[in-house]
C-alpha cells in the first residue's frame, strides 16, 4: 500500500487545523482579536509593565529593611488582629442565626408559599450581587468608621450566600424522614424540628465554620474602606509608606489565616465524620 493510498483512505487526518475544526479555529481567532483589543483598550505596553516592576524595587527593598522595630505599635497591631477575628466570628454567627429560618422559608420541602419564596430568593440574589466591600463602605457611612461596620458587612454578605447554601441543604434533606413525621399527624413546627433539623444541623455547622474561615480572609480587607480590623492598620501603613511594617502585618495575617484554616478544617472533619 502506497502513501497515496493511505492518504486517500483517511484524507481528514491531513487537513490543516482550521479545516478540521473550523468552529474552534474561528473562536480562537476571535478571542485573540478580542484580547488584543482589550489590551489596546487599557493602553498596555510591556515597557509600562516593566517600568512598574522597576518602581516596585524600592518598595521591596523598604519592605525588607526593618527600621526602628522596637517603636512599632504592637498593641495596635494586636488589637487589629483580634478585632478582625471578632468581626468574622460575630458576623458569621449572626448570619447563621438569621439564615436558619430563611432556609426553611426558601425550601420547597418545608414551605409552600411560592411567591414569598420567590421574593426571598431574589433578595438573596441581589445581596450576593454586591461585593462585601460595597456593603462595608455603605455601613461605614451609617455607623461610622470601625469594626461595627465590618461586622455588619460580613453579616450581610453572609446572609446572601449562607441563605442560599442552607436552603439547598434543606432541599436535599431526605423526604422519607419528613413524610414519616408528617404521617404521624404532627404540625409544621414538629415536622421541622424532628424531620428536618436533625438531618441538616451538621451540614449547617460545617458550612458556617467554613464561612468563618473565609470571612477571616474577607475581614482582613474591610479595613481598606475604614471598617476596622487589621486591614485598617495595614492600609494606614501602606498609605504612609511604612513598607517594613506593612510586610510584618501581611506575614501576621498569613499566619493567623493559616491557624484558623487548620483549626476549622479539623473541627469540620470531626463533625462530618460523626
Amino acid at each position: 500500500m502506497t502513501n497515496k493510498d493511505i492518504i486517500s483512505l483517511c484524507p481528514q487526518a491531513f487537513l490543516p487545523f482550521w479545516r478540521r475544526s473550523p468552529v474552534t479555529f474561528i473562536l480562537v481567532i476571535l478571542s485573540i482579536i478580542y484580547l488584543g483589543f482589550a489590551i489596546h483598550f487599557f493602553g498596555f505596553s510591556l515597557s509600562k509593565i516593566l517600568e512598574g516592576f522597576a518602581n516596585m524595587k524600592p518598595i521591596l527593598v523598604a519592605m525588607f529593611t526593618w527600621q526602628d522595630f522596637s517603636t512599632w505599635n504592637f498593641p495596635g497591631i494586636f488589637d487589629g488582629l483580634v478585632q478582625t477575628l471578632a468581626m468574622a466570628f460575630l458576623g458569621t454567627f449572626f448570619a447563621t442565626l438569621v439564615c436558619i429560618p430563611i432556609s426553611f422559608l426558601t425550601s420547597k420541602k418545608v414551605f409552600r408559599f411560592t411567591l414569598l419564596r420567590f421574593f426571598i430568593k431574589r433578595i438573596l440574589d441581589m445581596i450576593r450581587g454586591v461585593d462585601i466591600l460595597i456593603w462595608a463602605i455603605i455601613y461605614v457611612r451609617a455607623f461610622g468608621l470601625g469594626p461595627l461596620a465590618g461586622l455588619l458587612s460580613i453579616f450581610t454578605a453572609d446572609v446572601g450566600t449562607l441563605g442560599k447554601l442552607f436552603s439547598e441543604a434543606t432541599d436535599n434533606a431526605d423526604t422519607k424522614q419528613i413524610e414519616g413525621i408528617e404521617s404521624s399527624g404532627s404540625n409544621k413546627i414538629s415536622v421541622i424540628r424532628f424531620g428536618v433539623v436533625p438531618q441538616i444541623i451538621p451540614i449547617f455547622i460545617s458550612q458556617s465554620l467554613y464561612f468563618f474561615e473565609s470571612n477571616t480572609r474577607s475581614a482582613v480587607i474591610l479595613g481598606v474602606v475604614g471598617a476596622g480590623g487589621i486591614g485598617l492598620q495595614l492600609t494606614e501603613r501602606m498609605k504612609a509608606q511604612y513598607w517594613d511594617q506593612a510586610l510584618f502585618i501581611i506575614v501576621l495575617i498569613l499566619i493567623m489565616v493559616t491557624i484558623i484554616d487548620t483549626l476549622s478544617r479539623a473541627i469540620r472533619k470531626r463533625i462530618i465524620d460523626e
Partner: peptide, 22 residues
C-alpha cells in the same frame, strides 16, 4: 509530521483499524 501520520495510518491499517482513526 506528515510522514509520521502516514506511518501511523499504515500501522492502523495493518491492525484493521484505519476506519476508526479519527
Amino acid at each position: 509530521p506528515k510522514e509520521e501520520k502516514i506511518n501511523a495510518l499504515k500501522a492502523l491499517h495493518k491492525l484493521d483499524l484505519l476506519g476508526k482513526a479519527l
